[in-house]
Design a protein around this nucleic acid. Structure first.
Length: 813
RNA sequence: GCGAGAGUGGCGGAACCCGGCAGACGCGCCGGAUUUAGGAUCCGGUGCCCGAAAGGGCGUGGGAGUUCGAAUCUCCCCUCUCGCACCA
């Protein structure tokens, strides 16, 4: 009798696996096995692993183990995204060094991963905060710099007053810092950017080719890139002769312009306000608008605005229209100025009504008579252009392109495409990140650190309290250097890189661990394209967009052979509690390690994987029940032990029913694993267990079922399966290097099936029939059924549908 | 507002891809057995309604459609979740 005792078997096998060195990807390019690169999003080392890690990595591990058993050469690496603000803030709070905090957490997480039975190739482990890693992050920065894709400019940036750092647009959520929730303010700073906008169109085009990505992630990427087609049009300021450009998606409404609006930050605004002799009140309001943080404005829905007192001339009809400054126009999008077409744009309409401006209809649907005096909202779409000079009578919106082209011919503008995507701001004025490898020389400007001098190491003796400039700026020995070109005194750049830079290429480094002559070898990356990327949907935009951008850049640099890094993406759901995210502050935090200590790692893995579809959220409150009560999956493992144990000791021929079910289960589970349907696969293994139990209780043998069950259990519950395979079933080698069972169609085939007999589509009877029963036989049985006879009594059967051997449907009148 | 996805027992969910026994599997609950006891184990039951039972009726958010037959395909509506949101 074999009792299931996780506490005994799990540490034992963990040791053995370590010694045996399982799970190493081959370094041999001639290895004939098919390769499978199972990539999990590398964790951020804040504290111990949480439930989200437990779920995501359990799923990723099932896939990796499944592929191993299918005979693949599997690369299943692990590393840590170990730079970043969290470490720095936590370290400040605790009065210790970020490095100390970070590496202590990494060690804890690594130990937890081993305890969970993760099949990582530990020899390829990396940490983005190691000099040997960020050396190459810096190298890649220089590559982008060399390619003209990294540049510095003075720009208004999003500044978090709490974290004392700049944030990327992507890190501002509803006007607040993504990290701490503090409202973000505007500030002008000189910052480093990566020219991701240069790749906007390619990022957009190629995202559509990712057929194995979740649709919603593709949509989110598309929306983020935000391509709009239309035209730019040049207006002239009548009083000053300044030229000002606008972007519009609706050039067909140009004849309906009745006013013109600038964003408060627009560079022309100060001089135009002067030229227009704006009133004191107007100037005060202007000041207020210009100093209001961008974010507060975003939330405002007011249609306030200030009249500038100057006019612009509409190039298509020569009309003079008044100009305004209004917060509803954003400097960040388009050109920072818009033409006001109140009849056909809702925002412009509201603005016009607020300020008593004309509304002129220039698109009129046939049979309708839109009257500016009585309109209560703007009309956008279908109709015929009117009051539109040469375009009168043309259809809209079909004429948008024609108008744009006409503008070009007339020299008034041109067709244009605009993206919402901004360049990627990568400078951070914080300590715990990769230093930007640039030296500022008075004579030579921005000079790259020579590759031989990389890494620019992060000094440890730094006062890293945030103070509005980079902590590195206060470290004289770091800052003072000499120019690599002229040898004279120069200053190092003191900003560090956004951690998203680190995570944009780590999956390449796994392919060439320890490589000394570059970030990775092209042939290694070519040999190990990512087969499956698994991670949280919270990275649906930023990380994935940046990693895609990097891949394209490196492709263009000739360093990688493909254009997209992750052909297959799977997002696991979140682990939540009672409908809300778990957090320490809410007091609803459940951690995986206590569960592992109490019930074992296999149970924790099975709880996660059996709870529901992998991509759906798991609400711990709904699935967990009493924490002291034995989890259902633990109970099941006990039943598996009992059944496999008995089967191992008993000889004889297996009941054909059980053989059949075994093969059907192999077929089903294999398919489920290909499709991430872990919960369904586990339920099938449970069914097989129940059937084994019944066969054993009836005195039958079950050895074949026991072997197959143990093997199929291995990806989910690696410890229990190993114990059964080696100790109970008596195999010498690990179950994890055994070959995945194959299914035999002949053995899986049923010899009898259930014939369902319907009358008018309702099930009236069921009969067991031979699998090869023909139509006549089925129909005869249906006709002979007493229940069917009762159901059709007194009625005429007008049609007989027969799908032998499974179904007969008698249709009556 | 725009976009995406989802609505099935007391609960998590299966069947949806490819129309054919709805509710697999598990949790919970009910009954029984065993046990000093148990949050342990084993056996049986468990969609709802009527009925002692046999049996019957109803049933996959609502409504229509296609079909011999719809949880599944099509259309409309409702609800919820997620993402984006003054993007000119």
């Amino acid at each position: 009798m074999h009792r299931y005792d996780a506490a005994e078997i799990e540490p034992k096998w963990q040791r053995v696996w370590d010694e045996e060195g399982l799970y190493r990807a081959s370094d041999d390019p001639g290895d004939p096995r098919p390769r499978f690169y199972a990539l999990d999003m590398f964790p951020y080392p804040s504290g111990d692993l949480h439930m989200g890690h437990a779920e995501a990595f359990s799923g990723g591990d099932v896939i990796a183990r499944f592929r191993w058993m299918q005979g693949h050469d599997v690369l299943h690496p692990i590393g840590w995204d170990s730079f970043g603000l969290n470490a720095e803030n936590a370290a400040i709070k605790r009065g210790i060094h970020p490095k100390e905090w970070t590496y202590a957490n990494i060690e804890q997480q690594a130990a937890s991963f081993k305890r969970m039975g993760m099949s990582f190739d530990w020899t390829r482990r990396l940490h983005s905060s190691d000099p040997e890693y960020y050396r190459w992050t810096q190298w890649l920065f220089l590559k982008l710099f060399e390619m003209g894709l990294a540049y510095r400019k003075n720009a208004p940036v999003n500044w978090c007053p709490n974290d004392q750092t700049v944030l990327a647009n992507e890190q501002v959520i509803n006007g607040c810092c993504e990290r701490c929730g503090t409202p973000v303010v505007r500030k002008d700073l000189t910052q480093w950017f990566f020219k991701i906008t240069h790749y906007a169109q390619r990022l957009l085009d190629d995202v559509g080719t990712l057929e194995e990505w979740p649709e919603r992630v593709i949509t989110m990427q598309r929306n983020w890139i935000g391509r709009s087609e239309g035209a730019t049009v040049r207006f002239r300021v009548d009083e000053t002769d300044d030229e000002v450009e606008v972007f519009t998606t609706r050039p067909d409404t140009l004849w309906g312009v009745t006013f013109f609006v600038f964003a408060p930050e627009h560079p022309l605004v100060p001089s135009l306000a002067g030229a227009g002799g704006a009133s004191r009140e107007a100037r005060e309001m202007l000041d207020r608008l210009q100093s209001t943080p961008l974010t507060n404005r975003e939330q405002a829905e007011s249609r306030e605005g200030v009249r500038l007192g100057v006019h612009v001339v509409n190039p298509v009809n020569g009309e003079r229209v008044p100009t305004f400054v209004a917060p509803y126009v954003l400097m960040e999008y388009g050109t920072g100025a818009v033409m006001g077409v109140p009849a056909h744009d809702q925002r412009d309409f509201e603005f016009a009504r607020e300020h008593g401006l004309d509304v002129r209809v220039v698109i009129q649907p046939p049979g309708e008579d839109r009257d500016p005096a009585t309109m209560t909202e703007a009309h956008g779409h279908e109709g015929v252009m009117v009051n539109s000079g040469p375009f009168d009578g043309e259809p809209s919106p079909a004429s948008i392109g024609a108008v744009a082209e006409w503008l070009g011919e007339q020299g008034l503008g041109e067709p244009a495409v605009t993206y919402r995507l901004r360049d990627w701001l990568i400078s951070r004025q914080r300590y715990w990140g990769a230093p930007i490898p640039i030296i500022h020389c008075e004579d030579h400007g921005e000079v790259p650190v020579p590759v031989a001098d990389l890494p620019v190491e992060l000094p440890e003796d730094v006062d890293f309290q945030p103070g509005g400039e980079s902590p590195l700026a206060r470290h004289d020995r770091f800052v003072k250097t000499t120019c690599p070109r002229c040898g004279r005194d120069a200053r190092r750049d003191t900003d560090t890189m956004d951690t998203f830079v680190d995570s944009s290429w780590y999956f390449f480094r796994y392919c060439s661990p320890g490589y000394e002559d570059g970030p990775f070898r092209r042939e290694d990356v070519e040999r190990w394209p990512v087969s499956q990327y698994t991670g949280g949907v919270e990275h649906a935009i930023l990380h994935l967009l940046y990693a895609r951008f990097f891949t394209k850049v490196l492709h263009d640099a000739g360093m990688v052979p493909f254009l997209e890094p992750f052909p297959r993406l799977m997002n696991q759901g979140q682990v939540i509690y009672d409908g809300a995210s778990m957090s320490k502050t809410k007091g609803n935090l459940v951690m995986p390690m206590p569960i592992i200590e109490r019930w074992g790692a296999d149970t924790m893995r099975l709880i996660m994987l059996f709870a529901g579809p992998f991509e759906d959220d798991i609400d711990w409150k709904l699935i967990a029940g009493d924490p002291d009560r034995r989890p259902g999956v633990h109970h099941w493992l006990g039943r598996v032990f009992a059944a496999v144990g008995e089967a191992a000791e008993r000889g004889g021929e297996e009941p054909s029913e059980l053989v059949r079910l075994t093969h059907r289960t192999i077929e089903g589970v294999t398919d489920d694993l290909e499709r991430f349907r872990f919960n369904v696969a586990i339920s099938k293994l449970m069914v097989l267990t129940n059937e084994m139990r019944a066969a054993l209780d009836a005195g039958g043998a079950a050895r074949g079922a026991a072997e197959a069950l143990t093997q199929m259990l291995a990806p989910f519950a690696p410890f229990a399966a190993e114990e059964l395979w080696r100790e109970v079933l008596g195999h010498a080698d690990s179950v994890h290097v055994s070959r995945w069972p194959t299914f035999d169609e002949a053995l899986a085939a049923e010899d009898t099936v259930t014939l369902v007999i319907q009358v008018d589509g309702k099930v009236r009877d069921k009969v067991e029939v031979p699998a090869d029963a023909d139509e006549a036989r089925c129909l005869g049985l249906a006709r002979a059924s007493e229940k069917v006879g009762r159901a059709i009594a007194g009625r005429e059967v007008v049609k007989e549908i027969v799908r032998a051997p499974k179904l007969v449907n008698l249709v009556t009148r």
